[in-house]
Design a protein around this nucleic acid. Structure first.
Lengths: 229, 229
DNA sequence: GATGTTTGCGTCAATATAACGTGAAGTAAC
DNA sequence: GTTACTTCACGTTATATTGACGCAAACATC
């Protein structure tokens, strides 16, 4: 019996949209390609799926070898199948997005070799392949997800203030949210736990530090975005 | 230069969860396999992606040749990568789900050759491969989607009554929804347009016939499911 | 006409939401 | 210490939405 992988099959790549939040800015990690095609173009980090790997294995390998990261939040996005998406031949891409706290990996804009860089998600350069669309899908997913699920803490330090969480939401959703209503919703939903500690050394009143509530009930909160007009 | 598809690559299959609604029952189309593996087992219809095909091409081919259908609502679900999911070797499956109106294809439970059959989604047999999980993902997606997006009309005739739409929602969500509140939401959202016609020949008061409003504004309604207790 | 059912529209109290006020806590300047 | 300024934490209020029902018109059957 002929094995399936002896037939002609498209190649399978995994492409990663790695989000990081730093200095009140949502950023995405891009790689400057050193080879054709799209040499010297910015692209999402990615790699080919090996026969024995799961998608998450491939993600970890890319994160580890190209970016020096591990143990991050990962979620599958969508699979991209445009036959023309890779000039080298037929390549299917499975998109994943990751949420990381740049502080944990000592990566801040400009500090790394200039072939890997954080870019503000609102100021992206032209991307190679169809990575513009993969990125768009990722940002849209993140924006939807954060309304119902407590993913914010993946991007913040373990201890954070309500104001910091609030700024993160405004930054991701790219809108303004009433500070006081936001606080009430987050607290009513028991999204976070007050540690009793305070953040010291700030100019004004010292805000209380919270941590994420791991025992949060599902579907317990919903953030509403103002209707555009 | 060696082409990518000359490397060893996993095979790529597309598996379909085809939903149909008939006689107040949400059903899914299953195929009885005639070959190993999972001979005589019920499975989702599926097929391998050909080099030049998009996923949707493959979906259409499966729907056309195995089920005699075309022009249906299709949406990508998720890609399944468990290395052990197919005993024949490494096969990645891209799941899609379809919504069809069985009346349009003259397929009703029991009327086809006994290797293709509609099954009530709450009374499924044991499925081959990992199709149980693909199905679960599809049902979950449909349940979430219908709360915010007008997908109901894909499953109904062009003209339908509010009661019929209401029953469809209760069936898919597997819960009860207040008849009068449901009507109000659907009408306030302009989900549907009153045609002025009525469904004749029923035992009691003749209900008005509606059609789907194609110019529906996005994010204009939300159905709430009662909290379980 | 009486009966039983479905349909279509309304009511009302409870809840959730958006918009905004205010005083306390902190730093810095004088 | 006092004043000025900022952020933080907690309220308040008007409005909108929701859930839980009531009820009469429309229809077939008797």
């Amino acid at each position: 019996m002929k094995l399936f992988h002896e037939y002609r099959n498209p190649s399978l790549a995994v492409d990663l949209v790695v989000f990081g939040y730093h200095d009140n800015t949502l950023s995405v990690l891009l790689l400057n390609r050193k080879e054709e095609p799209f040499k010297d173009c910015w692209t999402l980090p990615g790699g080919f799926l090996q026969m024995e790997e799961t998608f998450l294995d491939t993600c970890s390998r890319i994160l580890q070898t190209k970016l020096g990261m591990n143990e991050v939040f990962l979620e599958q996005l969508y699979s991209f199948d445009d036959p023309g998406r890779d000039p080298r031949g037929r390549v299917i891409a499975v998109g994943y997005y990751a949420l990381i706290n740049p502080a944990k990996f000592k990566i801040v804009a400009g500090s790394m070799a200039n072939d890997v860089k954080w870019f503000n998600v609102r100021k992206l350069p032209v991307l190679g392949f169809d990575h513009k669309y993969i990125f768009k899908a990722a940002l849209q997913r993140l924006k939807s997800k954060i309304l119902y699920h407590p993913v914010g803490f993946e991007l913040l330090d373990e201890l954070f203030t309500i104001t910091e969480l609030h700024e993160l939401y405004e930054c991701i959703l790219h809108t303004t949210l009433d500070r006081r209503n936001f606080r009430r919703k987050i607290l009513d939903a028991e999204y976070v736990i007050n540690t009793g500690m305070k953040r010291e050394g700030l100019k004004n009143r010292h805000p209380e530090l919270y941590r994420f509530n791991k025992h949060l009930k599902k579907n317990n909160f919903q953030i509403n975005v103002p209707t555009e007009s």
